[in-house]
Write a protein that binds this DNA or RNA. Structure first.
Length: 244
DNA sequence: ATACATGTTGGCGC
DNA sequence: GGCGCCAACATGTA
């Protein structure tokens, strides 16, 4: 489920509940669910991989992490994995094996919404500044950094780096300006391609390097390696992706 | 069946 | 106190 585009799709699916009143709240998430009963869901906002269900006095923050999932209108998984269920007169939303907590509305204003690569508020110039401030950082870590590219996950990371022909362990400070530019542009572009492919259930078919073994350009064997401080797996072509 | 994976956090040691 | 590294967690799949 979890990279930014998938979360945007989840939001779309939850949208019919906006304007509706919560009639029941349950699940094993450890926070005061009762206070949301009788409250109207005012808005759903996403920030990268996070989702905020916004009510009058507080918001519920949901993060699917690696294995989280959700369903609508019907509980589809064992009770034990149900973190949160919100029931409305028109149906319900169910969240499983994820991080759920309540945050006050003030918290929302502390979020740097301009860091969300899929947001209308996405600010490429600001991203550029953040990259400039970290010349020693590897580009693979930069892409995964939720303060810089909120919403980007490991799949997007691998595909973006292939698209722009940059080796994952390249240092930001060594990247030529036009590579920085395409890095920022493709982080957003690929996320939207991901969104459309995911919507059509053809995402995997479009992977060029992620989980692949040969380079689609030169046919050479791809390198599979844990890279960066995050030690997340990278798939890349030594020939078609330059180490800066 | 064992290992690994679309992710983050909290705790430990320095 | 702050930083960095790593274990822990959770579930489906190969």
């Amino acid at each position: 489920m979890p990279e930014g585009p998938s979360i945007l799709l989840m939001k779309e699916n939850l949208l019919p509940f906006v304007g509706k009143q919560v009639t029941e709240a349950s699940g094993n998430a450890k926070f005061d669910k009762e206070i949301f009963i009788g409250q109207t869901l005012l808005e759903i906002r996403t920030f990268g991989k996070q989702t905020y269900l916004i009510f009058d006095n507080a918001a519920i923050r949901i993060h699917l992490l690696m294995f989280g999932s959700y369903s609508i209108d019907e509980q589809t998984k064992p009770d034990q994995s149900l973190r949160l269920a919100l029931i409305f007169s028109t149906g319900g939303m169910y969240f499983y094996t994820c991080s759920v907590k309540s945050v006050d509305l003030e918290f929302l204003s502390s979020i740097d919404w301009e860091a969300d690569v899929m947001s209308d508020q996405w600010n490429p110039a600001k991203a550029k500044k953040k990259l400039k401030a970290n010349p020693e950082m590897m580009v693979c870590d930069a892409l995964m950094d939720q303060n810089i590219f909120s919403g980007v996950g490991n799949i997007i990371k691998n595909e973006v780096l292939f698209r722009i022909g940059v080796q994952p362990e390249s240092l930001l400070g060594n990247l030529p300006p036009q590579k920085i530019k395409s890095l920022i542009a493709e982080a957003r572009n690929y996320s939207f391609d991901f969104l459309e492919w995911k919507r059509e259930f053809t995402l995997k078919k479009h992977w060029l390097v992620h989980t692949k073994s040969t380079c689609p350009i030169c046919g050479q064997k791809l390198i599979k390696k844990q890279t960066g401080k995050g030690k997340r797996r990278s798939f890349y072509c030594e020939k078609d992706q330059t180490l800066y």
